[in-house]
Write a protein that binds this DNA or RNA. Structure first.
Length: 577
RNA sequence: CGGGGCGUAGCGUAGUGGCUAGCGCGCCUGCUUUGGGAGCAGGAGAUCGGGAGUUCGAAUCUCCCCGCCCCGACCA
């Protein structure tokens, strides 16, 4: 039982000055967490209990799915990370340190290497597979910009699991098992979420999905089709465009276009010149980029920007992309800034990438590669060629769903889980093999799955709060019932004590506000701020032999006889989220 | 890393060269009060982020450093 009279807790009346997003503001005000440094927080008793509740739900669902818990140190020698190349590839986000002998260590940002080696050390037969292991552990990443309280921290708690299979089909099955376990977990946490297609990114591998909890303060953007349910991270959103028939398009025509350095000025000019009917989407923008210091041109419709994130995610084998600078233009005199068209790309030795919207046979208005000159009726396949198609244009609200063509909506969310099929990358570089039925050595294929446990505290807080404070789901809350004793008569406190003891006896965790001499207003405000789902007030109504039962989330109140309170509360709890 | 903002008591803040750094919350003591962050009286609590400088005099001006927040870049 938690007692307000002794609980290590001080709630704050004012919002902390350094907190903006609701979860951060309220978790600090209600005394769950305190900031230690940027992206590094300590947990006070209420926070620890809440975090543990979430951890335990995650643990139970992992165990139920047949995954086995292990535990690694956070402090790791660099060896394994050297072997996979991540000691360097991970870059400045890796916390590195040395021991007294000068040996290199790191604080684990994720544990693929360690799990792979652990399995390698124990297992060597196909008969041992499939296998899935997990841990709940503190991770360290020296984020360039930690933000939003515990939504993106530099130290955070994560559940990470890894599956090990002999075959690709086995991996797909393991992936599905994890997917289902995640659905059960997040449902139990009472979170609103969408499962969206994602890019596997730097981790390599094929299929990947993210569990995104929609909320305004989220830092991920994703598209959602309300009709067919298609959901994808913007990076993974695909564009379906049918090739056009260009046989009737008039020949390419170069025209004078002075003072049209931007798409807007160009559209204005061509509408005046050719009798209207043009808009930005009919022009072709040539964005010059350096991909690993090789010049590339990316073609997108004039009314859209190049989305560098999407481009980078979809452009295989390129590490670094940057926009052209003046020095780069100087090296390519054939490129006339503001008047570039893809017609001469070959001649200039530039690789041309195009967004799928620039389909074969489509006709465009674009630069004519000469100062103050543009061209119209420039047809893909006739007047220029595209080396490769790559999703690169910015996604807009209302773009067509790739599955059913319905206009999609765009929403923001917090990433709370990520599952993906890793493949053999780590098993290969660390030599994790098993003998198959024929006694032949086979490289194991892996899946990797993560849940941001401490981030889930923030995500749930983001999704369940109001102007009064937090409002936790029953299974997550630091206690299920918050009993407020108001008044100065001993009878009130005695009744409250007894009810608290009875509830605890029935397996219902209780927070009891047993502070004497604290005014009722303070107790109510604190209870609402802390966000325990059921508030029982033992006070004025006691004269009639009643207590008041309130539902935090809805504000519903009802009076029940003291003798009925235990029953009323235990019956109420299962009906709440 | 680029842009913007900020750093004064546990929290929120006032104070643009001049007296002992002010106020609210919280905290302590006493009295009163007890259904919506009570009242009165008294009290404790601050090297004004750090260092150097300018000045008769610096929270206030200058320089350097540190830290925090927001936007962007980045982010398995």
């Amino acid at each position: 039982m938690l007692r307000m009279s002794t609980l290590f807790l001080r709630t704050l009346r004012d919002d902390p000055a350094d907190a903006e997003v609701p979860s951060h503001r309220l978790l600090v005000r209600a005394g769950y967490i305190r900031r230690i440094a940027a992206g590094i927080y300590s947990w006070l008793p209420l926070g620890v209990i809440t975090l543990r509740n979430i951890e335990n739900i995650v643990r139970q669902e992992m165990d139920r799915a047949g995954f086995q818990e292990v535990h690694f140190p956070a402090l790791l020698p660099k060896d394994a990370y050297e072997e996979t190349g991540r000691w360097n590839d991970y870059g400045p986000d890796l916390f590195r340190l040395q021991d007294r002998k000068g040996s290199d260590y790191l604080l684990g940002p994720t544990h693929e290497e360690m799990f792979t080696l652990m399995v390698k050390g124990e297992y060597s037969s196909y008969k041992d597979l499939p296998l899935a292991l997990y841990q709940i552990q503190t991770k360290y990443r020296d984020e360039a910009r930690p933000r939003s309280g515990i939504i993106r921290g530099r130290e955070f708690v994560m559940k990470d699991s890894y599956s090990f299979d002999l075959t690709d089909e086995g991996l797909v099955e393991s992936y599905q098992r994890h997917r289902e376990a995640y659905i059960k977990t997040f449902d139990r946490l009472r979170m609103k979420y969408n499962i969206v297609s994602a890019m596997s990114g730097a981790m390599g591998g094929s299929a990947s999905e993210e569990f995104l909890a929609p909320c305004e303060t989220g830092e991920d953007t994703y598209v959602l089709c309300e009709k067919c349910g298609y959901a994808a991270n913007v990076e993974a959103m695909t564009t379906v465009v049918a090739p056009a028939d260009a046989s009737k398009v008039a020949p390419l025509e170069v025209f004078d276009s002075p003072n049209t350095p931007t798409i807007d000025t160009l559209v204005e000019l061509i509408n005046a010149k050719f009798g209207g009917g043009y808009d930005g989407s009919m022009t072709l923008k040539n964005v010059m980029l350096m991909a690993d210091e090789k010049p590339i041109s990316v073609l997108v419709p004039g009314d859209r920007e190049v989305d560098l994130k999407r481009l980078e995610a979809n452009l295989a084998g390129v590490n670094d992309i940057r926009v052209f600078e003046d020095a780069d233009f100087a090296k390519f005199p054939g490129l006339v800034k503001g008047y570039i068209g893809p017609q001469d790309a070959k001649k200039n030795g530039i690789t041309v990438y195009a967004d799928p919207r620039i389909a074969r046979g489509t006709s465009w208005v674009t630069g004519a590669n000469a100062k103050d000159k543009h061209a119209r009726n420039v047809v893909n396949g006739r007047d220029f060629t595209v080396d490769s198609y790559v999703e690169s244009a910015q996604i807009k609200k209302g773009d067509a769903c790739p599955k059913c063509a319905t206009p999609v909506i765009i929403d923001r969310a917090i990433e709370i889980g990520h599952i993906f099929q890793l493949g053999r990358k780590y098993a290969d570089s660390l030599g994790l093999t098993v003998l198959d039925q024929n006694g032949k050595s086979q490289v194991v294929t892996m899946g990797s799955y993560g849940i941001g446990v401490s981030r889930a505290v923030a995500a749930i807080a983001e999704q369940s709060n109001d102007e009064l404070g937090l409002s936790w789901p029953v299974e997550v809350a630091p206690a299920k019932v918050h009993i407020v004793a108001t008044g100065k008569e001993d009878a009130v406190f005695e009744t409250a004590e007894k009810l608290a003891a009875d509830l605890e006896g029935a397996g219902v965790s209780v927070m009891l506000d047993d502070r004497r001499g604290t005014s009722p207003g303070v107790k109510f405000k604190d209870a609402e701020l802390i966000g325990i789902p059921v508030i029982v007030v033992v006070g004025k109504a006691l004269e009639q032999g009643n207590v008041e039962v309130r539902v935090r989330r809805t504000g519903e109140k009802s009076e029940v006889a003291v003798g009925q309170a235990l029953k009323a509360v235990t019956e109420l709890l299962p009906t709440l989220p």
